[in-house]
């Protein structure tokens, strides 16, 4: 029997950790919420107009947390400024693009919100479109920043941005629904939102979930029929070490249980819709964990 054992190797850290995974979740939730916010003013779906400010504020708050989180994650927090100074800015670095997006996106949301408050339909629409493009880009970027590392086999897939965007969409809706629910609990009857909005959003969420499952299936196919690294990455890293966030948190809690709720009459119940929303919002965090940490995990032994 031929055997071979690695008996010594220097050890390596996994460079990006919890902070980055939380950041990916926040950006996603923010983008998702903002999509809801734009329904009324950009896409002209009138019944969503009451939700606009709530969604927009949620999106802004989610995103304003990000710079603090990220800056503090830097080895040299003060030097975050280098990311913005022309002499330093590096056009080929995905993170350089991301920095711009993270700066521009909340600004555009604020401008949009300003015009919404002023009830200026034209400008709200124009800035809404700008903001929605930026929202999508900001979240697209989180997928891309991991994808553009050819050495990280689990991340190096062109599906990455799509997976992220779909995740953003469903977690944003999930989060919105939860917020609406909390808001409705706290506010007097007359200020509450219509529950049918929640049911309707849950419906959108269901389509998102189905698409997300489809994407995950594609990803699964690619890894399972991929190189040895991908197969081991999937079989050992995701199915063993990261089994909880990958299998349980993302798939079961975050996708399948909500899907079951949403395809049954339960979706027409308050509890059903809210539970599904909550599970989705939380489940997407599972994906952020395995995506960020799992992707780097295997290689830290190399």
């Amino acid at each position: 029997m031929e055997e071979s054992i690695v008996t010594y190797n220097a050890f390596h850290h996994v460079a990006w950790g919890t902070t980055i995974s939380v950041y990916f979740w926040l950006v996603g939730a923010s983008a998702g919420s903002f999509v809801i916010s734009s329904f009324g003013w950009v896409f002209g779906i009138k019944r969503y107009k009451p939700l606009t400010m709530t969604a927009s504020v949620t999106a802004i708050i989610m995103l304003l947390l990000v710079p603090f989180l990220l800056t503090w994650d830097l080895g040299k927090p003060v030097r975050f400024i280098y990311l913005l100074i022309p002499g330093y800015w590096h056009s080929t670095g995905p993170m350089a693009w991301g920095t711009l997006l993270i700066c521009l996106y909340p600004m555009s949301m604020m401008v949009y919100s300003y015009f919404v408050i002023k009830s200026n339909q034209t400008f709200a629409k124009v800035f809404g479109i700008v903001a929605i493009v930026l929202a999508l880009s900001t979240h697209w970027y989180t997928g891309v920043v991991m994808e553009l590392n050819p050495g990280r086999f689990l991340n190096h897939t062109a599906l990455a941005p799509l997976l992220f965007l779909t995740g953003a969409f469903i977690s944003g809706i999930g989060l919105m629904n939860v917020i609406v629910w909390i808001r409705n609990m706290l506010l007097p009857e007359e200020k509450r939102f219509d529950w049918t909005l929640v049911y309707e959003m849950a419906q959108f969420m269901m389509y998102g979930i189905v698409f997300d499952i489809f994407l995950l299936f594609l990803d699964f196919m690619q890894t399972i029929y991929g190189s040895q690294n991908e197969v081991i990455g999937h079989g050992v890293v995701l199915m063993q070490v990261f089994r909880f966030p990958y299998l349980w948190l993302e798939m079961v809690i975050g996708l399948f249980i909500p899907l079951i709720i949403l395809v049954t009459p339960l979706k027409r119940t308050k509890a059903g819709a809210i539970v599904a929303s909550l599970l989705v919002a939380v489940g997407v965090y599972g994906m952020r964990i395995w995506w960020v940490m799992g992707g780097q995990y295997l290689q830290s032994f190399y």
Binding site: S4, I5, V6, N9, Q228, N229, V231, I232, G233, V236, L298, Q299, F301, Y302
Partner: peptide
């Protein structure tokens, strides 16, 4: 690379 992980 995978070998480094699976055969420690």
């Amino acid at each position: 690379e995978p070998h480094s992980y699976t055969n420690r």
